[in-house]
């Protein structure tokens, strides 16, 4: 597009005879140094300070959040432990109540049983007594009856001793002696 020769002779950048070509560099150096001083002394530290402050703030907040989390965890653990403890206590109370109720019931049943047992024994004793009485009466009745029958049949009173022996043997044979 552009002939090389025209470029070489026409390039203002290569025109070092022009004092402006070098003077712009001198001025450029001065401007750059001023820019450097202003930026490095004032502008950039200002940005750096804000960024550092923000980083510190974030770190501080994170730390606080971490601490709160630890505290909350501890609280939650405490609450869980308390609930577990309460539950264990309640269970123990229930167990104790059940146990005592069972014991009371058992005692009551035992006394009732004993009473019934006693009544039964009493009744049995009474029955045995009545029976013995009845049996005793039976021997007397049998002796008298036998004496009467023998007297009627033979006309004379039987021998008391033999009669008793026979009655006793008969009763023993029937299982009521």
């Amino acid at each position: 597009m552009l002939p090389a020769a025209a470029m070489a002779e026409g390039m203002p950048q290569m025109d070092f005879k022009n004092p402006l070509t070098i003077s712009q560099v001198v001025w450029g150096a001065i401007i750059f140094i001023v820019l450097y001083i202003l930026a490095s002394r004032f502008a950039l530290p200002k940005v750096g300070a804000v960024l550092e402050e923000r980083a510190a703030h974030i770190a501080r907040d994170l730390e606080a959040a971490q601490a709160s989390k630890v505290k909350a965890d501890a609280g939650s653990a405490e609450a869980i432990a308390a609930v577990a403890k309460a539950r264990a206590e309640a269970q123990a109370a229930i167990n104790a109540a059940l146990e005592s109720a069972k014991d009371a019931a058992a005692t009551q049943a035992a006394t009732l049983n004993a009473r019934l047992e006693k009544q039964l024994a009493d009744a049995e004793t009474q029955i045995a007594g009545a029976r013995a009485q009845a049996m005793g009466a039976l021997r007397q009745v049998a002796t008298e009856t036998a004496a009467t029958v023998v007297t009627r049949l033979t006309g004379r009173a039987p021998d008391q001793q033999r009669l008793d022996g026979a009655i006793g043997a008969a009763l023993t044979a029937r299982g009521v002696g």
Partner: peptide, 28 residues
């Protein structure tokens, strides 16, 4: 003092950079 339009643009560029930093960071 042979101050060229190139130098004027250098000043403009420097001023813009500093202004961006200075005005931008003013709210902190």
């Amino acid at each position: 003092v042979n101050f060229t339009q190139a130098n004027l643009m250098m000043v403009a560029a420097s001023v813009l950079v500093l202004a961006l930093l200075w005005i931008g960071m003013r709210p902190r």
